[in-house]
Design a protein around this nucleic acid. Sequence first.
DNA 1: ATCGTGAAAAAATCGTTGAATATTTCACCA
DNA 2: TGGTGAAATATTCAACGATTTTTTCACGAT
Lengths: 201, 201
Amino acid sequence: MGIARPQKSGKDFGARRWQGGGVGADIRALRKSRAITLGELADKLGRSVGFVSQIERGISHPSIDDLRTIAKLFGVPLSFLFGEHQRDPLGSRFVVRAGARRQLGSTEGGLIEELLSPDLSGSFEIIRSEFLPGSALAQPVRRNTEEAGYVVSGKLEIEIGGEWHVLDKGDSFRFFGEPYRWRNRGKVPAVLIWVIAPPTY
Amino acid sequence: MGIARPQKSGKDFGARRWQGGGVGADIRALRKSRAITLGELADKLGRSVGFVSQIERGISHPSIDDLRTIAKLFGVPLSFLFGEHQRDPLGSRFVVRAGARRQLGSTEGGLIEELLSPDLSGSFEIIRSEFLPGSALAQPVRRNTEEAGYVVSGKLEIEIGGEWHVLDKGDSFRFFGEPYRWRNRGKVPAVLIWVIAPPTY
DNA sequence: ATCGTGAAAAAATCGTTGAATATTTCACCA
DNA sequence: TGGTGAAATATTCAACGATTTTTTCACGAT
């Protein structure tokens, strides 16, 4: 065996490197993260499987309407599918500048989520979450994932597996598939770095 | 299929929950991360396989000398294998307080690494790295891992796959198995949250 | 032309099965 | 008690066929 445990099939690494900055790769990542097939996606889009395959590989190009449907389907802002990508002409495929992050969910609920990696590929998801003052996640949610977080600034209360904790700057956590919820009762936003594996988006 | 993609065998989740706060689990995690077997570890220790198995499960207890050997073998400070664990009597198994992190590597080289998760288990490693002013990693290193980082404070220069970048507060990066190195030419320490999958420790 | 389809070809995934390895259990020794 | 060694158990891994998924591409419609 080589170094450390292999990722999956071993050739995953190279396979990640995509052509240019197509939306295709993003769509594929989103689709994979929900574990749905080309066929299913094609159905929802009312398009053929072959065509969707081509879209994901950047050979064919989806209509704006298709993009809209896709964005809605996966719950990401339409802007996410758009150029945010390589907009920085000097941009490297490795780094994401503080001002150039792609937003993930919707802003409502007082939670702002931004992607810290250049794209959606990879075995985990690293996100910058900003919890606005007064915001809260009312009902606990449970995902079948491993999640970890680090408080960059502010203060956040979080309930994990039934235990409430008040996290201050510098505190961190990690849990496996426990139900959790949070609230920010402070006066300032709480900023967390949140890591989720495998990715959910 | 349940929610999202399963981790690996599916029962990984529960299997993580260990008894008390034994060093055993840590030793096992360290050993697994290097992909060596009980037999190999037993050899280095001059102990039997059965015994080492028992140590890892908290049934038998290693001597101080054994611990020393193990720590050296895995390149972690001896303190790591000691109590740092559940020292906080109120401590949850989910959260790690800013002041109660376990140190990882050695401090030399101007790099301070601290574990942000409660233990070494899981499919990724989340670390707080502090790069002291003037410190640098002279030679690029390459690991067969997926790595991502976020600059919490300070400024860090990092070379990834041959490209140098100056990262400021809020900048982030992600790469797959590229060779990298770094240097902090600033006057203040650079603090990064660094995520590595799979874990290397 | 360009956009998109449909179906054949290719590839990746999944469920077994069996051999080889790794780990746990436990009776017993120092 | 601390530890061994070997039998019992569990896990890993490769090989294989059967599906399922994805890609390719010739062709029809606009």
